[in-house]
Write a protein that binds this DNA or RNA. Structure first.
Lengths: 231, 231
DNA sequence: AAAACCATACCCCGAATGGGGGATTTTTTT
DNA sequence: AAAAAAATCCCCCATTCGGGGTATGGTTTT
């Protein structure tokens, strides 16, 4: 059977890791609404040396109490849960147990979901098609202070740092916007750029038109969100 | 000279393979000022099937022309380079060849350097103590659209998404600040929170005092930079 | 050469903002 | 129960800001 086949391969992989000297017992809790996946995961974890599943739950509501009691090292959390969403669950859990490592394991890969999960406090993000051996590695990695992510997710996260967004602002306008983002007033910007306050006003008018905003705070907010400036 | 010899061989190798139409070959360039490391890396890469080193350079200045000519798939880049820094180099390279994957390989692990490198356009960040096998995996991973990072770096990156900073703002003040960060006016905030504009004004006065700022744009800027709000 | 764009600068005016007071009620902490 | 903190509301006033014009000189594109 395919499932058992996977487990077997995974365990082979783990043996290799064991030989490398990784020998701490890692306790894991699972929050996953699909029964098959949930139980497969539990089998995988309990069937692997140095891994122990200390709780399997079909929803966050049912998980919270047990997780607080068991204090597992790592929680495998689905996102698309009934009732309290995985994202909300992560927030709540991290508030109760700040040092816990929450590893998202889901089929959802929309950018916003990924970022929401990480903002909420997840330490890693894996797609459900992750092979068993890699999943075990990822749990280990989470517990070792890492942040395992599926290939595409990792790139997504890294690219979020890059200022890609080319607005249609001119160089001077970008310069003025940068000063706005430092909280400067018209007058201060004028002094910094050695131009008249009226010119600053003119640039800002154009910036507002191009960004479709109507105030400094809105412009600053947009600049930060869309990474229009290099501070 | 050894360097030229290797370089020559590398180039020959690549051309031959290209002619044969073998496309899974990953071409790599190395920018690293330490000669020992540089040559070890080249040996490792050239000694591995499907990897080919198509240029090794001791500085960015010496690398730029060759990299543009060779168009390698992946560049292994040190940060602490003489002359043009690795960070600057990444920016320049990504501007010239946007699709190139730049993998930082360095001993520096200060948070700011890591973020600077990623902002500049690096697709991954490895410490120099990465074992050879993992380094090769990381190069492969970079080329497959991933973002390989050393354990600690990955966690650092993921944690950067989390709103850790607990300011001394009250709940209501944080709420008001959140609305400011959406670019709302006093009046709009008052309407949203069902309180008078005067109360909004009062909250904002207190926010300014606590954040030590004197305008909306400054407050918004600080809120974004220190992740005081959950947008 | 004409047109378009950019950076510069000025005027007017009403609305929004920031800083200074003071005050009451509710909630939380001690 | 008392004290402290938080949230609510009000007034005054000078400054800043946002939107509406207009204009000139320089560059770039067409």
């Amino acid at each position: 059977m395919l499932l058992n086949q996977r487990f077997y391969e995974a365990e082979l992989g783990r043996k290799t890791l064991s030989q490398k000297g990784i020998s701490e017992m890692i306790t894991v809790a699972i929050v996953e609404d699909d029964q098959d996946i949930r139980e497969s995961l539990a089998l995988l974890i309990n069937g692997t040396p140095n891994f122990s599943c200390v709780g399997i739950y079909p929803s966050f509501e049912k998980a919270l109490k047990g997780i607080i009691r068991e204090q597992p090292d790592v929680v495998l959390m689905d996102i698309g849960l009934p009732g309290v969403s995985g994202i909300e669950g992560i927030k709540i859990l991290k508030e109760k147990i700040p040092e816990i490592d929450i590893l998202v394991l889901t089929i959802q890969s929309e950018d916003q979901v990924v970022f929401d999960a990480l903002c909420a406090g997840a330490c890693g993000y894996l797609m459900k098609d992750t092979p068993p051996a890699q999943l075990l590695d990822a749990i280990q990695e989470s517990h070792s202070g890492g942040a395992p992510m599926s290939t595409r997710i990792a790139r997504l996260v890294v690219e979020s740092f890059q200022v890609t967004s080319h607005s249609n602002l001119t160089q001077r306008e970008t310069e003025v916007l940068t000063h706005l983002c430092k909280g400067k007033s018209y007058k201060m910007i004028a002094d910094d750029l050695f131009i008249s306050e009226e010119t600053v006003r003119r640039h800002i008018k154009n910036i507002y038109r191009k960004l479709e905003v109507h105030s400094k705070s809105e412009a600053v907010a947009k600049a930060f969100k869309e990474k229009l400036v290099n501070l």
